[in-house]
């Protein structure tokens, strides 16, 4: 009686082994197919990245010619005295950008990332940029600070950076606007 069960168990084991064997036999073909598709996907991704790059540059060339291009970046070299919450940017008295930050974005900034807050066009001449930074300061108190910069826009691309830094001398954050050469 037990022989039958043994036979069944053996048959099932054999079937399982056959199944595994078949799977192993089919493995090289399947692996080749998978590899081919995987390589194809990777190649397509590479092409997509290049396409993205070209479209990105094309968009900038189209909308922001180098002679009038004006960009404002934001960086955070802080975190201890200010937890960034929101930023508002004015160019020549007009609000051109405002941004509310998610925790992920704040973390990315605190880890050395730089956000392009605004991209636009400006004529040559003197302009004024003002930034309003809001966040949570020491002891979880709402904190607001502003900075202004008057600068001359020439015929080259202009780029400014809003820097939010911790100042340990007075345990306060400091906001400044600097011009990138």
């Amino acid at each position: 009686m037990t022989d039958s069960l043994k036979t069944l168990a053996a048959a099932l084991l054999a079937a399982l082994m056959l199944l595994t064997g078949a799977a192993l036999a089919a493995e090289p073909d399947a692996a080749n197919d998978s590899r081919a598709v995987a390589e194809r996907v990777e190649d397509l991704k590479k092409k997509v990245i290049r396409l993205n790059r070209d479209l990105f540059i094309l968009e900038e060339d189209l909308l922001f010619p180098a002679s009038t291009q004006f960009a404002v970046f934001l960086s955070v070299d802080a975190g201890e005295f200010l937890k960034l919450d929101a930023v508002k940017l004015k160019v020549n008295g007009e609000i051109v950008a405002s941004h509310l930050y998610t925790e992920r974005q704040v973390t990315a900034l605190e880890r050395g990332g730089m956000q392009r807050l605004y991209m636009g066009n400006l004529k040559t001449g003197t302009h004024e940029v003002t930034v309003f930074v809001e966040g949570m300061g020491p002891d979880n108190r709402a904190y607001k600070q502003a900075a202004t910069l008057a600068f001359d826009k020439g015929t080259e691309t202009a780029a400014l950076e809003i820097r939010i830094q911790d100042r340990s001398s007075n345990y306060q954050p400091v906001v400044s606007i600097v011009e990138w050469e």
Binding site: A71, F73, Q105, G112, G113, M114, Q115, A159
Partner: peptide
Amino acid sequence: PAYGRVLYNYH
């Protein structure tokens, strides 16, 4: 700034 932007997205 170009690298800063890369890091911003990377993180």
